[in-house]
Computed example of a mutant assay.
Amino acid sequence: MGGIGSGARRSTHIGNVEEVLALDIRVLRRLGVVHPGECTCDTVHWSIGGLSASSARLRVDLSDIERGGVMAISGEMSDGAIKQHIAIEMVPSPFGGHRCYFICPTSGQRCEVIYYTGGRFGSRKAQRLSYAVQGMNEISRARRKTAKLRSRLSGSGDQPRPRGRNRIDTVRRLREAEFEAKTLYLDRLRNLADRSGAQRIPGDAR
């Protein structure tokens, strides 16, 4: 007979994607680092809290479109030096051009984002990473959604500030997310008050 919790399903995840360094092939393509038909070199920098964390030199050779290419990564990471090659597959797009994918060196599967853990890059599944939202309750997820929309409006990160109809739509979604987060929070307070016998709930009108 096993001990307490011996029959529980064990988690296979060892961290969250938000906590590790990553390379997104879509972002690299927008920056001109990944360019079908060319061989390019550039340096990428990661920062945490506005402070420089690590940097690496990328050499992306996509000169042979039909055969695909490879990205060579070299540099000093937070836990030591890295020298790794990641294969890139180019898939013809129905609207012309090509769509690029990393090939995970562990699983061999296509992916658009690779994550750094254990001294090397790989896909999320191969690196056994999960999303932070998976471990959140409803209120935390609603607040996270609100924070992301606020960040989107301010133009932080790799995306520019939305304009015109996009900005109007983002503002509308932000207001809805704020209302949802507040409603969930008050519902939770009411449930706690019902259990404790409290007479008044914070936020209730008199």
Rank of each mutant, 00 (worst) to 15 (best):
T40D: 01
R26Q: 03
A53E: 14
I201D: 06
V133T: 08
I73V: 15
H45P: 01
L23M: 11
P160S: 11
N16E: 10
M1K: 07
G3I: 03
R57G: 07
Q159E: 13
G3Y: 03
R195G: 10
S54W: 06
L149R: 06
S11I: 05
Y185Q: 10
V171P: 02
R141W: 05
D169P: 00
L51A: 15
C41P: 00
E76I: 03
D79S: 05
E66G: 02
L149V: 02
E180G: 00
Q109L: 13
L186A: 05
P36Y: 12
M1D: 10
H85F: 12
D204L: 09
E176I: 03
S154E: 12
T43F: 04
G68C: 13
G164R: 04
R161T: 10
Q199S: 12
G80A: 13
H45Q: 13
R143F: 06
E176A: 15
I88E: 04
G15M: 11
I168R: 13
Y185H: 07
Y115G: 06
G75Q: 06
G2N: 09
G32M: 11
R175E: 15
R175T: 04
M77V: 15
G118V: 09
R67L: 04
D187V: 08
R67D: 13
H45C: 12
K83F: 11
R195C: 06
T40I: 13
G122Y: 01
Y115R: 06
G50A: 07
R120D: 03
I14L: 03
G203A: 14
P94L: 02
K148T: 10
G108A: 05
I14Y: 01
R30P: 04
L186E: 11
A56C: 05
T146C: 12
G122C: 02
D158G: 01
F95N: 14
M90G: 01
R200F: 12
R57E: 15
R195M: 13
S130K: 15
K148R: 15
D42H: 08
S93C: 09
V91N: 02
R59G: 03
R10E: 09
Y101E: 08
K182T: 09
G203F: 10
D24R: 10
K148W: 08
L153Q: 07
P160K: 13
V17A: 05
H35C: 11
P202R: 09
S123Q: 04
T170S: 09
L186V: 04
R57W: 01
L23T: 03
R175L: 04
R163C: 08
R206A: 14
Q159H: 12
D24H: 13
R9N: 06
C39V: 10
I114S: 06
D158I: 06
W46N: 05
I201V: 15
N16P: 01
S140V: 00
R57S: 14
D187P: 00
L51P: 01
Y131L: 15
I86S: 02
D194Q: 10
G108L: 05
